[in-house]
Design a protein around this nucleic acid. Structure first.
Length: 274
DNA sequence: AGGTTGACCTGGACGC
DNA sequence: TGCGTCCAGGTCAACC
């Protein structure tokens, strides 16, 4: 599901619904894959805490939690990565628990925070503030043009692969890599280190424009939905190339081409992108 | 070290 | 109806 705009939308939706609520108990499913921390660590960190903030960092949802007063390390973070198909739902406790639910946090309000993920590429972990779970890399909405240009210097990898590299930029995924390259008029296979300054400038502008527009529209809903209540995003209606193989380019009518790059479906207009 | 590939999973769409 | 194939919002470990 989720790249930066989708995770931003989900985090905002969660913040509206659960900020100030309290996690009483936590249930974890049988399958261990979705857990990066041990079940014991997760239970110990989450149970009997107050949810102070919910926000996005890269493609991660971060829930800032506060434990019972007097506990020395009473500040913790619940880190959720949604993988491809993960969702975080807020549901009344009496509603049916759907298939592939891997974790449920029971809240004082009587609602539940449920982590559902059919493909199990998502991950749950707990940490303490300042532990730096993300590693190197920058938020694309914060990066200056100068720093953006430095990221790609000397890199032989295709520019699309570089955009997807989370050690360089946090939060760009397959949709927004393809869409921003279209907007910038750059072919995905171009070597990152060989792009000219004006091309990198166009890409910097395009990427930030596309991400901001997508956030405004609640992200892209490609096959399932986005948002803590299941509301759909609408940015998919604005896609110029992603999943539009063979359809006419919105600018020049040339059929959109699909190639495989780094194992990912990659879509571009052979005429508009050089 | 940087770059590339395949593995990890389930399910939906499509063709026969 | 069913079976096979391909495709899907993402990382990782293992190779070169």
């Amino acid at each position: 599901m989720p790249e930066l705009p989708e995770v931003e939308t989900i985090a905002r939706g969660l913040a509206n619904r659960v900020t100030g609520d309290e996690i009483e108990t936590v249930w974890l499913g049988e399958k261990p894959e979705p857990l990066k921390s041990t079940p014991q660590e997760i239970l110990a960190a989450l149970e009997h805490t107050r949810i102070e903030h919910v926000r996005r960092e890269g493609k991660h949802i971060v829930l800032d939690l506060r434990g019972p007063k007097g506990t020395p390390d009473d500040a913790r973070q619940w880190i959720v990565h949604l993988g491809m198909t993960g969702r975080m739902l807020v549901a009344e406790a009496y509603t049916e628990v759907e298939k592939h639910t891997h974790a449920i946090a029971k809240l004082k309000s009587g609602r539940e925070l449920r982590f559902v993920d059919p493909r199990r590429f998502g991950r749950l972990s707990v940490t303490q503030p300042g532990q730096g779970f993300k590693g190197p890399g920058t938020e694309p909405l914060d990066i200056s043009l100068e720093d953006f240009i430095v990221l790609f210097k000397g890199r032989k990898t295709p520019i699309k692969s570089a955009l997807l590299n989370q050690k360089l930029l946090h939060g760009v995924g397959n949709i927004y890599a393809d869409e921003s390259l279209f907007r910038a008029g750059i072919r995905p296979l171009r070597q990152a280190g060989r792009l000219k300054p004006d091309e990198l400038k166009r890409l910097h502008t395009a990427l930030r424009h596309v991400l901001r527009e997508a956030i405004k529209l609640g992200g892209s809903s490609v096959s399932d939905y986005v948002g803590a209540d299941g509301e759909k995003g609408f940015f998919q209606l604005k896609h110029n190339v992603y999943l539009r193989t063979g359809e006419p380019c919105r600018k020049c009518k040339t059929p959109i081409k699909r190639i495989v790059l780094g194992g990912r479906g990659t879509h571009y207009c052979p005429k508009c992108q050089k």
